[in-house]
């Protein structure tokens, strides 16, 4: 019989640290996927996974045994991603100011669109890179909200609960993200 996650958490809270290993083994991969989607970088995703589990272990007393452990862990991971992106944005802003013009030059490249695929968007490696670059222009909150809504299929309510913001703010973050992505990516769409 498979042991429930609530029972495992109770075991850990009772002092059995080894029991936490089961939760690590069960959820590492899904948290890694989320972190990778948010950051687009393997090393960053790995770091976020480690921090997520460390934080989960330290604040395990706050987990309500009735609720879903995976949802609770997912929320921790998303907030870790948000903090990470905010810190990175600050760092990047500092670095960009040292190399002015580079980003603008890259953005000016227009890709030749020749293959009318089903989505009318050429998903070549270059376009994927364009999408990644456009995602990089979003604010951390916009990026996280958009990833949750568009790629993870989370509802606006779930986004607002996870990020502890109002539903109107969650909607606004998704809208702003799409608006910015349109500006960057619409020239790639075959008309």
């Amino acid at each position: 019989m498979e042991i429930t996650e609530a029972a495992v958490v109770a075991q850990v809270l009772a002092g059995d640290r080894e029991a936490f290993r089961l939760l690590v083994n069960r959820h590492t991969r899904s948290i890694y996927n989320v972190a990778y989607r948010m950051t687009g970088n393997q090393q960053d995703a790995e770091e976020i996974v480690q921090e997520t589990f460390l934080r989960a272990y330290r604040s395990l007393e706050r987990f309500e045994l009735r609720s879903s452990f995976s949802t609770w862990l997912y929320r921790i991971a998303v907030n870790r991603c948000l903090d990470f992106l905010k810190a990175k944005k600050m760092n990047d802003r500092y670095q960009i100011s040292e190399n002015p013009g580079t980003e603008e030059d890259d953005r000016a490249i227009q890709l030749p669109v020749t293959d009318p695929g089903p989505d009318r968007l050429l998903l070549s490696a270059e376009v994927k890179e364009k999408i990644a670059r456009a995602m990089g222009l979003l604010t951390p909150a916009e990026r996280v909200a958009f990833t949750m809504r568009h790629m993870e299929g989370k509802s606006i309510e779930e986004i607002s609960k996870t990020l502890r913001i109002r539903t109107s703010a969650a909607k606004n973050s998704v809208f702003r993200a799409v608006q910015k992505l349109r500006q960057q990516l619409e020239p790639l769409v075959i008309g």
Partner: peptide
């Protein structure tokens, strides 16, 4: 159309022994 063209990012295989690394850090 634009949104349909933005796929969900597929994460690559996580590094080997990631679970082990996470557990050791915890």
């Amino acid at each position: 159309v634009l949104l349909a063209g933005i796929p969900a990012v597929e994460a690559p295989e996580p590094p080997a022994y990631l679970e082990q690394k996470v557990w050791l850090r915890v």
